[in-house]
């Protein structure tokens, strides 16, 4: 009897393996596990056995039944999975087709660059301060240590609106405005904005451009702080690969004055067209705020000191993205702007 049980079980398992559909599976189940199934029949016939064999056979038969029920369930799951997959395969798509265009639009490359600059300086405690674009001669030049007829005024080609009123040639007049507003607090601001120069437009120069000015005023602001701040900015904005150098320069409103250069990121310092073969690219003009300017802002230069710097916006973006013509910025060709 036990042998018979083993045989039925073996047969059931091997036939289950070849079952390929739900219907056949049901037939199988009926055949072995159904009310009149082979195994059920055998369990029913336990009574025919001698008394002492019954418990052993009963255990074996129940075990076999449980085993087959489990096998059935596994096979059923497997078949269902296969069915689902077969079904899905019929609805497959060409995954290489382009997706549905969603947007969004594009921020102007200047805005994106300004935001990067804001973020870097915000981490160092510099907040954005905005100032007018149409300025008095006095703020644009005079209070920045360039009285009328000062030869340094030649450094800026100026649009004149009327006697004493100019389109600001740089963001520096904002220094005076910030100082006069915040005095006697210490200051840490950046001043972004449009500036204007009376200059013929070419691939390298525009009559309208952006600048970001920085100003820190405090009781203990040092030239080494300025160099540290510019170094930090260059490292974060340009990715911190090349060397940086500070060289002496001249601006009427700072003293000492310096310019910061980075090793040309295009030729890695070997010399190319963009860096005019010098291997260096100027990234900022800077210096310690001139005592006359501090005084004009309301700060006593014997107790206060400060630094200021100015950097372009278009030129850094040009370097970063390999843009070779500044006119692209305000020409607003969407085929250009949508690249960023």
């Amino acid at each position: 009897m036990l042998d018979e049980l083993r045989q039925v079980e073996e047969e059931a398992r091997s036939s289950l393996r070849v079952v390929q559909s739900g219907e056949n599976l049901e037939i199988w189940r009926r055949r072995y596990l159904g009310k009149n199934g082979a195994l059920t029949e055998m369990l029913r016939s336990v009574g025919d056995l001698p008394k002492d064999e019954r418990p052993a056979f009963g255990r074996a038969a129940n075990e076999a039944k449980r085993g087959l029920e489990e096998a059935f369930q596994r096979r059923a799951d497997e078949l269902e999975r296969q069915d689902t997959e077969r079904e899905l395969r019929g609805g497959s798509v060409d995954v290489t087709l382009p997706g549905r265009p969603i947007g969004p639009g594009h921020l102007h490359i200047t805005t994106q660059t300004l935001r990067q600059i804001y973020a870097i300086f915000a981490d160092m405690g510099f907040q954005v301060y905005e100032a007018p674009e149409v300025e008095t001669d006095e703020l644009n030049f005079g209070l920045l240590n360039m009285p009328p007829d000062h030869p340094a005024r030649d450094m800026w080609d100026t649009f004149w609106v009327e006697e004493g009123v100019v389109m600001r040639t740089h963001t520096s007049p904002g220094q005076i405005r910030a100082m006069r507003e915040y005095c006697p607090e210490p200051i840490r601001v950046i001043l972004p904005g449009k500036c204007y120069r009376y200059e013929q437009v070419s691939a390298r120069s525009e009559h309208q451009f952006y600048q970001v000015e920085g100003l820190a005023v405090g009781h203990d602001i040092r030239m080494t702080d300025l160099i540290g701040t510019l170094t930090e900015f260059a490292r974060r904005f340009y990715g911190g690969v090349g060397r940086l150098r500070m060289r002496g320069s001249y601006f009427p409103f700072t003293e000492p004055s310096i310019e910061a250069d980075i090793e040309c990121i295009l030729c890695e310092g070997l010399g190319c067209r963009v860096c005019k073969n010098s291997g260096w690219l100027e990234i900022a003009g800077a210096g310690m705020v001139h005592p006359v300017v501090l005084e004009n802002g309301g700060y006593d230069p014997t107790e206060w000191s400060g630094f200021a710097f100015g950097t372009g916006v278009e030129r850094p973006a040009m370097l970063k993205h390999g843009i070779d013509d500044i006119r692209l910025f305000y020409g607003n060709d969407l085929r250009f702007l949508r690249q960023f």
Binding site: G125, R188, G218, I221, M223, T224, D225, G228, M246
Partner: peptide, 16 residues
């Protein structure tokens, strides 16, 4: 200026 070290501002942070 190439001999100058870089420092971080140790001055008081202005009101934000």
């Amino acid at each position: 200026y190439d001999r100058f070290p870089t420092t971080r501002m140790r001055d008081e942070l202005p009101p934000q």
